[in-house]
Design a protein around this nucleic acid. Structure first.
Lengths: 158, 158
DNA sequence: TTCTAGTACATTGTACGCAATTAATTAGCC
DNA sequence: GGCTAATTAATTGCGTACAATGTACTAGAA
């Protein structure tokens, strides 16, 4: 007993590194996407749809890892801005099909070109970029498998 | 001209990897911190304060990378829950000093022990963990330096 | 001292993110 | 067919994030 508890320092935490990096990327894309009036979550939604449209809200959500509580209002805003169309499925009225608008199809090359140009500012060569992404994905995979609720906490672990 | 625009696939993006990993860590900590009724941003706020208390809102914000718009309501909630105390500086009334409550000081060992136990679920050895963090921090540093608003966009880059 | 910047925090408005609940619809089972 | 369970979105409520604005206060210049 009385084993000294390992100290936890903010700057040494992987979670904080990811939290910070994610927020900075968010800010980076906010600026890069400003000419198109798109937010980062809206952009990844478009990325998913450019790969596969139409999709139901559920399918879309499984690609971008967002649930309907986030997607429904997000998609309604994107519909207002003219990026997507929402149509309730005629055969199964529980489902809503999300499809790209003509504007989204037409603007894709412009957005890709501009984003690619902005990405060059990072000054990361392709190898470093890919290795970083793979490293992060590896960690994300480990986190996904862990379930802290299985760790019993009695309130007197000390 | 007519150079084919490089394709952008969701699953190949570093930003999406970071975005996903960050959200999963958020969820991981939400479960790990549930016994203490702390959210992840509240936890990193405590981490910062455990290293250095008291701090002004500004100092705290520079450590956790959050501005007053986020911190003020967050700290008020933490005050309500009894984790911190907020006191306006007597010499300079523009400043608000945030200090740890006795509860926060007393509970620190319990939280550290429990969080450390949960972290073991990740199954990452220390070397991998540290290398991953350093890789992410390297990327975060690159992102910080990049400013997409400097990239001119005329609307006809094609 | 009075005027003027500058600083620090609070507030407002917009947009996520997600757990929990609700509503509508479909599908399975007798 | 009629009842029940499961599925799919939408809604609600709470907590971040952050830009932009407002307000109180401080400090430096004239």
């Amino acid at each position: 007993m009385a084993t000294p508890t390992k100290n936890i320092l903010l700057d040494e935490q992987l979670c904080f590194a990811l939290y910070t990096a994610s927020k900075r990327f968010n800010h980076f894309y906010a600026e890069a996407l400003a000419p198109f009036k798109l937010t980062y979550p809206q952009y990844i939604t478009l990325l998913a749809l450019w790969e596969n449209s139409p999709m139901t809200v559920r399918e879309l959500g499984s690609h971008v890892n967002l649930d309907s509580g986030t997607l429904t209002p997000l998609l309604k805003r994107m519909q207002t801005q003219g990026w997507v169309e929402r149509k309730r499925d005629e055969n199964d009225e529980r489902q809503v099909n999300i499809s790209l608008s003509q504007k989204a199809i037409d603007t894709k090359p412009e957005i890709f070109t501009h984003v690619n140009t902005c990405m060059e500012l990072l000054g990361m060569d392709e190898k470093t970029y890919n290795e970083t992404r793979d490293t992060v994905n590896f960690a994300a995979d480990r986190i996904k498998k862990a379930d802290p609720s299985t760790v019993k906490f009695t309130g007197d672990e000390l």
